[in-house]
């Protein structure tokens, strides 16, 4: 009986400490990927707007604001509004033209979405595991309880 209860405790510990933390980590990763996707989409949006505003590439420069930190903005002027540096991963940035950048961003977003889906799958698996263990625990306790009740009915 004691062995059984200690086993139950072990299972509970496993669920709470291993599976739940795993799930948390996976979900955090997923969140990070989604926010990255959002960043890329924002860049894409900006590029599209710039091309809309300047379809023939006549514009020499455009004004913008730079965040200095803590929402203090300073004025800035972009001299070459046809090229953009984009992060390609591992801290590398590559200078691209707008059409190239849009292609790159599409690919990147696709990749990121795939990653996110993988993580989604992983999270679902972990959730399933948690549910499985919990059901198992429930069954074990139920059996234990019923056994007790049987004994009880014998004596009453």
């Amino acid at each position: 009986m004691e062995k059984k209860s200690s086993k139950l405790l072990e299972f509970e510990k496993f669920v709470n400490e291993k599976l739940r933390t795993d799930l948390k980590l996976v979900l955090e990763d997923q969140d990070a990927i989604f926010s990255e996707i959002a960043e890329y989409l924002q860049v894409k949006d900006t590029i599209e707007k710039l091309t809309d505003a300047n379809p023939k590439g006549e514009m020499k420069n455009f004004q913008t604001k730079v965040d200095l930190g803590c929402n203090f903005y300073a004025n800035a002027v972009v001299d070459d509004p046809s090229k953009i540096f984009i992060s390609i991963g591992f801290g590398f940035f590559l200078e691209m033209k707008f059409d190239e950048a849009i292609k790159f961003i599409d690919k990147k977003v696709k990749l990121l979405n795939k990653n996110a889906e993988d993580l989604d799958q992983k999270a679902a698996e972990i959730k399933a595991n948690i549910k499985f263990v919990l059901e198992g625990l429930k069954e074990m306790q139920q059996l234990e309880f019923e056994g007790k009740e049987e004994n009880h009915s014998l004596f009453v």
Partner: peptide, 30 residues
Amino acid sequence: VMVPISKVAFMTGRLVNTNEILVLLGDNWF
């Protein structure tokens, strides 16, 4: 400076009007 478009992108540019700062007070009031 490199003018950041977002976290993953920036463009070459320069800061101008360096004594003119736009400050967010909160609730989208600048």
